[in-house]
Structure formats: structure tokens, C-alpha cells
Design a protein around this nucleic acid. Structure first.
Length: 465
RNA sequence: UGCCCGGUAGCUCAGUGGCAGAGCAGGUGACUGUUAAUCACUUGGUCGCUGGUUCGAUCCCAGCCCGGGCAGCCA
């Protein structure tokens, strides 16, 4: 007999004389003459109730069907006599496939997220993490749907890279050299020409520069893959390994970039609401009561666009006592961004045109900006509660200005010869952004720690499982 | 990396300078339909580690380890 997923069993409109279910016991409630078993197979949040009568041949074994055990049940799907569920399964036979004794750490009681993090091999069996990872899977699919429908080409950019100054942060070194006894050159320095790739290599911090190569050939492209930052960040919004989505569009300026970013965020929220309704309901009940209101709010509102210079004026005139001073030319701090999105505009905000000196070398110098207030076509999309969820820019497509930017950031042109070639041969205006997939998940689920929306979190000092 | 908070039973937590506590989980029994079932009884401890103060430290002090929050870096 073919197995029925509990998701499908729950959704039936007609009873079934014969059904086979397989899953894990969430809880068992015994009475004198029968037991109730709540069975879950991860296909959906809500489990199914199995009724096991004491007259079953193996009924004595049911005492071993503790929380966590894997079992197989054959029986009938019938309307439930009890409250709280439409269907239940009256068992004709059951088999315990794998027992779980009293040491099984997950209880039917609530656990703290901190405890569950320590048992990352078992936490997907909890309601919360089952829901989180179903939403994660759905949204990953939605990312592809969004771009494929727009005829963007999916590009697999390399994980191992030799450019050591992409400018997005500290990098993890990749080497096969014996770190205890590395080969050394005549100056006593580690000789990287003896390394696997014949040069220093690292894990990627961004696929953007390679995505630009493909955008200047296939027009509209996107990447979606793991990204690594070796920063010693200990916050609820940072991980050393995370997934990022980076679209890159040829013949596109900053405004087209902001347009796409805003549409993309709304699309993902709408998709989760449509396809993960039960899981989102769970989050809004147990994780964040304001969740639904906030998601609807973002869907309904048109995102505010505000230039960096305007933002500085708003912050200066707010009369607030800032912990970090506000001054044109310095970075906006978390408290400033929070004020703008949560208090001043009360709305998602796209900030754009940042001072050139505090942004990356590849961002396009704004036409006609004052010499003492040079800006670049950068943008950050801020949402209430999380802060920055997207960072992007129009890229500098003019060779002279790009070289100027590299000089400003003290970069060696030789290392970027191919990047400069893109400006030498058929250059076009182009733009793109990066969306932190986990940050998007945090926003959609209301889960407030990035470690809880990624299956196995890598953070400073932690790389278990 | 800096500042702040925490570490007591499998889990969530209370507590005290003088024999270590509760709820849940586990075990035993009861219960004719439960929904984190209920009721009774019950097993269970390196009080994070090391050192110091003290007649005596889980408690006070120092260092270390681990976890969390906030900030910076960013997505």
C-alpha cells in the first residue's frame, strides 16, 4: 500500500477504508481501553490523531511509542469523534520502526530556542522549526519563480574565489597547505604559489562581480547561493555562512534597481502568505503576534524613497538625542535607520545616493553632484524590525570613473583586469542588489534570530553538525 | 571585538553562608474520547569549571568556559 502524507490525509474530503501513515509520535494519551497518538511526518504543521484500541494484537507495545518514536500505522480514515480535528485514523495495526526512550530531548512542552539550537539535529521535528524550514523551502522556490517569470538567467558564480578584495568583508582562506608547516619563499613568507590553485584563494563574499560578467552578456541574471563572511559578528542578524540572492541587470539604472527590489520583497511575502498560510498562522500565534499586520502593512504600502542627504536632514531636525552623531558623510547607524523606518516614515524605506567615501568602489558616481558632496548610486532597503534587508547599487560603467573609484579605495587595477575589461568592451549602464535570504525569512516568519532560520548556523565559535 | 545579563534535575525555572526545591518529562497505578488530557504515588543533582575568603560556599570574590541581548561590520 502507498503511504499517505499527513498533509494529504488532513485535506481529504472523503473517508478512506484503508490508509498507511508513517511518521513520528508527538504525544500519546492513554485511557484504559485505548490510546491516542498524535502523529506528524513533517509534511504539514498539524499532525493526525491515531486511535489505537486495546484490542489490537500488539497493543502492549504501544507503551513504547513514546514521543519521538517512528511508527507506521495502517487503518481507516474516519471523521473524528473528538473536537479539534476533522479526521482521525482508527488503527488496524501499527509497527514501531524506531523507539525513542526517555532521553529523547524534545518534549511536547515548549522549549527555548537556545536549547533547540544545541540539538539542531532534532529541532526540525519541532512545530516551530518544521514550519520555518517549510517556509524556507517554499521561498527558495519562489525566488526562482520570480526571476524565471521575468526571464532572468540563473548563474552559478564560484564559491572559491581568488579576488581577495571584493570589498564586502573579511574572507575565509581556502588552502590545502599544511598550516603547521607551510612552504616558504626566500623571504620566509608563506609561498602561495605552492598552494592548490597556485595563488591565495578564499570563500566568496559576493557573486556580484561575476554576475556583472553574465549581465553584460545575457542582460538579466541572478545568483542564489551560499556566501561567507569571516567577520567576528555576534548579533542576531549575522551569520558567517548565509544565502544571498543577487540579481544583476544590464541597461538598468538605480531607479529600475529599486523598483525590482521593492517588487521582489512584496512578491516573496505574498507567496509565503499564499502557500504557507498554516505555518504563518503558527508564527503569528506563538512567535510574533504583530506578524500578519506587519506583512500586510508592507504589502499595502508603497515603499518610501529617501535620499541619504534628505535622511540626514530628517535625523538632524528630529530633535532626538542620538547616541551616534548624525553628520553628512558618516554612516547611518542602526538607531538612525530604525528611527526612519519605524518612527518617521512608519513604512519600509529605500535610502539611496550615499556619500562616495563610505561605499564600495564599483558604485556609480552620481552625475552632477557637488565636488565636496560626492555621492554614488547606492541603495539600502530597510524594513521595520529587521533593518537592512537589501543593499544594492547602480554599477560604475564608465572606465575613467571606475578607475578613479579604485584609486580612491587603494585597489590594485591588475587584480581587476577582467572587471575593467567589461567597461572597455561594450559597456552598458547596469545595476543590481543583494538580498539576505535569512533576513527575508526572519521578516516573513517573525523569528528574531538568524540562527533559527538556517538549518545549521555557522557563527563565530560555532560550526557544529 | 566592546558593554550588559545569565549558567541549579532531561527541559523550564525558584532558592539559601549550615541536609538541594517546584512544574513538566520518565516510571507505577487510576480513568469510556483525549487535544501540552487529568488524578495519586514515584525515580532523578559534579548547583558551568578552577582557585580564593570562611569552621563551613551552590550562595561571597577572582579568573576561565559556555549561552543570550545590544553595538560595530553587513545581507
Amino acid at each position: 500500500m502507498q503511504r499517505t502524507l499527513i498533509k494529504d490525509a488532513n485535506a481529504r474530503t472523503e473517508p478512506l477504508d484503508a490508509i498507511l501513515l508513517q511518521g513520528w509520535v508527538r504525544t500519546r494519551r492513554d485511557a484504559k481501553a485505548f490510546s491516542f497518538i498524535e502523529l506528524n511526518d513533517g509534511s504539514t504543521l498539524k499532525g493526525i490523531q491515531v486511535v489505537a484500541d486495546a484490542t489490537l494484537p500488539d497493543y502492549a507495545h504501544i507503551q513504547k511509542a513514546h514521543t519521538g518514536a517512528s511508527i507506521e500505522v495502517r487503518g481507516k480514515l474516519v471523521p473524528s469523534q473528538g473536537q479539534g480535528q476533522k479526521w482521525e485514523v482508527v488503527a488496524a495495526s501499527f509497527t514501531i520502526l524506531g523507539e525513542a526512550d526517555a532521553t529523547y530531548p524534545l518534549q511536547k512542552k515548549g522549549h527555548t530556542l537556545e536549547f533547540l539550537r544545541e540539538i539542531a539535529h532534532l529541532r526540525p521535528r519541532s512545530n516551530l522549526f518544521g514550519a520555518v524550514f517549510r517556509v524556507r523551502s517554499r521561498l527558495a522556490f519562489a525566488v526562482h519563480q520570480f526571476f524565471q517569470a521575468k526571464h532572468f538567467c540563473y548563474v552559478h558564480t564560484p564559491i572559491v574565489t581568488a579576488s581577495d578584495a571584493e570589498g564586502a568583508g573579511d574572507m575565509f582562506r581556502v588552502t590545502t597547505l599544511d598550516v603547521g608547516k607551510p612552504p616558504r619563499d626566500e623571504h620566509g613568507e608563506v609561498d602561495s604559489t605552492k598552494d592548490f590553485f597556485g595563488k591565495k584563494t578564499f570563500l566568496t563574499v559576493s557573486g556580484q562581480l561575476e554576475a556583472e560578467i553574465f549581465a553584460t552578456a545575457l542582460s538579466n541574471v541572478y545568483t542564489f547561493g551560499p556566501t561567507f563572511r569571516a567577520e567576528n559578528s555576534n548579533t542576531s542578524r549575522h551569520a558567517a555562512e548565509f544565502w544571498m540572492i543577487e540579481p544583476e541587470m544590464a541597461f538598468c539604472d538605480l531607479y529600475g534597481d529599486m523598483e525590482l527590489a521593492e517588487e521582489f520583497v512584496k512578491y516573496l511575502i505574498r507567496d509565503a502568505k499564499e502557500h504557507c498560510a498554516a505555518d504563518l498562522e503558527f508564527f503569528s500565534k506563538f512567535v510574533d503576534k504583530e506578524l500578519m499586520a506587519r506583512l500586510d502593512f508592507v504589502l499595502d504600502k508603497k515603499f518610501v524613497r529617501c535620499s541619504y542627504t534628505e535622511a540626514v536632514e530628517i535625523l538632524t531636525q528630529s530633535g532626538k538625542a542620538w547616541e551616534h552623531p548624525v553628520a553628512w558623510g558618516s554612516n547611518l547607524q542602526a538607531e538612525h535607520e530604525r528611527f526612519l523606518t519605524e518612527e518617521h516614515f512608519k513604512c519600509p524605506v529605500t535610502l539611496y545616493n550615499y556619500p562616495r567615501a563610505i561605499k564600495a568602489f564599483y558604485m556609480r558616481k552620481t552625475d552632477g553632484c557637488a565636488p565636496d558632496r560626492q555621492t554614488v548610486a547606492a541603495m539600502d532597503l530597510l524594513v521595520p524590525g529587521i533593518g537592512e534587508i537589501i543593499g544594492g547599487s547602480q554599477r560604475e560603467e564608465r572606465l575613467t570613473e571606475l578607475r578613479e573609484g579604485m584609486a580612491l579605495h587603494h585597489l590594485d587595477e591588475k587584480a581587476y583586469w577582467w572587471y575593467l575589461d567589461l567597461r572597455r568592451y561594450g559597456t552598458v549602464p547596469h545595476a543590481g542588489f543583494g538580498l539576505g535570504f535569512e533576513r527575508m525569512l526572519m521578516f516573513v516568519t517573525g523569528v528574531s534570530n538568524i540562527r533559527d532560520v538556517i538549518p545549521f548556523a555557522r557563527t563565530p565559535g560555532t560550526a557544529d553538525f
